[in-house]
Structures are given as C-alpha cells and as structure tokens.
Simulated assay, not measured.
Amino acid sequence: MIGTRKLIAFVSNSAWSVYNFRLDVIRYLMDHGFEVMVLAPDDEYSGYLQQSGCRFIPLNFNNKTENPVADLAFYRQLKDLYHQHRPDFIFHYVAKPNIYGSLAAAAIGIPSVAVITGLGYPFAKRNWLYRVVKLLYKRALRKTREVWFLNNEDAKIFINEHIVNIEKVKVLPGEGVDTDYFSFPQRMAKKDSEPFTFLMSTRLLKSKGISLYADAARILKKKNYAVRFELIGFFEQHHPDSISRDDLDRWQKEGLIHYGGFAKDVRPFLQRADCFVFPSFYNEGVPRCLMEAASMELPVITSNNRGCKEVVVNNTTGFLCHVHDPFDLADKMERIINLPLEERSRLARNGRALVIKKFNIKHVIDEYIATLNSDWSE
C-alpha cells in the first residue's frame, strides 16, 4: 500500500497530544505517500500540525463531560465528518474518540483501530461510570479492525472483563520515542557548588504524584541536602484532578519546588538534571516522559505502577518506589544522591539502551505500517 495516495485520519482529544506523541508516525506516513488528516479540538498545536503538512479538522467536544446528549452530538459530528472527508483508515485515541469514533467509522464503512493509551478514571473506581464505559467500549470495539494497548496489564483487563476479544489485541511498546532527538550522551560532571537536581515533567494532575514529589522534597530538605527539585508541565483547566495553584504557590514559597512552567522542548531541562522523578499513581499507558528521560541518559525513579514499571528496571536503570509513599520515594531519591557518579552513569546508560531496544519510535512505526498494509476487506 505504500506509495498509494491514501488518506489516514488521526482522531484524538487535543492537537497537542497528536503533535507530541504521534508526529513521528505522521511524518513517516506522509513521506511514504499517505495523506494525513487530524481531527481534534483546536489549540495552539493545530497550526504546528498544519505546518507539518497535515489537514486539520477542529472538533467540538469535551472529553470530561458525562452528558449523554453531548456524547450523541459528538458521535453525529464524527459521522458527518467521516462521510464528508472519506478517510481510507482511521486511528482513534483516548476514550470518547475510541468509543464514538469507532461506532461512527463503522456506520460509514471505514476501517479503524482504537488505541487505548491508558485506562484513566473510569477504571480506577468500579462505579456506575465504569459500568457505562465498559458497555460502550464493548459495543464499539466490536466494530474495529484492531485494538491497541500500550502495556500488557491494560490489555489483560479488557480481555478478562470481556470487553474485547484477544484476537483483535495488539500491545505496542508505548507510543515510542525518537532516540536520536532525545540524545545527550556526554553529561558534564557537576561542580561541588551546584545542587543535585531532580526533575519532574508532567501534566499537573494530582494522580501524577506531584504532592508526593513535594513531600519527598520536604523530607530531604530536612536532612540538609543541597538539592533542587524542578517541575515543568501545564495546568489542565477545569480538569477535576488538577492540582491547585494555591498548592503549587505554597510549595514554591516553602522552597520545595521550582516550577518552570510549560516547556515545548524538555531537552534543556533534562540536560541540566541529575535524575528524573515520576511517582504517578494514574492509570498510565507507558509515560512518554519516562522514555524521554531515559533516552537522554538520566537515571529514573518512578512508582511501581502500571505502565511506569515498563520503562524502569529496578536497580539497573533506576529505582521503583512504592505507590502513594513519599517516604519510600525520598529514600530512593536519597540513594540516587549518594551514589558515586560512575554508578549513576551506569544506570543512565542502561536506561538509554533499554529505550533504544524496546521503545524506539521505529518499532511503533512498523506496527502502523503492518496494519495499513494488511487486507482491509471484511
């Protein structure tokens, strides 16, 4: 199929997520004869996608609402757009595009793949919302050609809960990372006067473990370590799990966290850091921030949590800490501080080697091409 002028659609909850996580795949497809159309709510990254050569179609929907009328309107919007633009194949990402987009594509007769990038909040609590989402997923995923997951645990849950048949399941190595772009093999030794620097880069959500990071910083500060704790990332307005600005201001005033805002390019922050920290208890797929940090030869401390533990081999590329435990997190951070430079460098080299072997974007591109080259006939 490579070399034919087929139109491939990517449908997600933000232009930012498509640009940040899937641009390498999109560029490869366009370089090999495909046209690419992105459907997502409009944000500042929609222009960047258009500059990269994509068509961009803005969507009107709220991924957080639980209003069935709004969801029905979203389904009809997608169905109309699919009928109008007639893509040859569609990749859907995150819950509502996966559910309503898969149903809309099937109604028009367009083959599609649902990519489960993480289970999120409905699967964290087995309440009425979970039951509704499970039922909707079960119906929608019957209509897809394949269902992709980013880790085995998420796939196992969907199979065990009889949401999807195992024959449709494919587990990707995360969404991949460009290990050439995220490369910094020659890290300079720090001067004695410079503090040891930890870095956390994430969406500013409670479940990403930001308060745990602040508490661990407080524990280490009381031990009189010369340490700097940096945080970068963006607030998600109106997100029910967002940390408060009051909390962030308080942590900064206490001297616990140095907040650097949102960084379009995280590499300069990764270059200056000595260790990357990510104590998430969110239902992660495979966190991109961990792959980027390890690819940049940083030792990593993360929680022994779904998705996170895929990227870190304990005591080999970094340390795994207990979930919801700031004292264990502080203990692992203290261990990193006190390691000889050559031992930290060993962890960092091992981390980059693991990412190159397991999470290189080339492996993910191969999966897309294999699916697009398969027989689409029923």
Rank of each mutant, 00 (worst) to 15 (best):
F196K: 11
S244F: 04
E310F: 10
L23E: 03
C275G: 05
R187S: 02
R335P: 01
F56L: 08
T317A: 05
L339V: 03
L205W: 12
N314T: 05
G118P: 07
A216V: 02
I257T: 05
L270R: 13
Y137Q: 01
E194D: 13
I99N: 14
V133Q: 07
L81A: 09
D366M: 02
L199G: 04
F359T: 03
L150H: 07
S52T: 09
N373D: 05
F229D: 06
N350P: 10
T202S: 15
L7D: 05
R187W: 08
W376D: 00
I365Q: 10
V177N: 02
N283I: 00
E236Y: 12
R145A: 02
G233K: 10
W128I: 12
P97D: 05
R349Y: 11
G261S: 14
P68I: 08
N350M: 10
A114D: 05
M291G: 05
L212M: 07
L205Q: 15
R335M: 12
I257L: 14
R187G: 07
L23D: 02
N98W: 14
V355I: 13
D375H: 03
A330H: 11
Y181C: 05
G176D: 09
F91G: 01
G47I: 06
E194K: 09
A348C: 15
N63V: 06
F149Y: 04
K358W: 06
N360L: 03
A214I: 01
S14M: 06
I166R: 13
M1L: 01
N67C: 09
E343W: 02
E367Q: 13
L347K: 11
A70N: 15
H83I: 10
P287H: 07
Q271M: 15
H239N: 15
L172H: 12
I219E: 04
M30L: 04
V94W: 12
Y82Q: 12
G109I: 06
M30E: 01
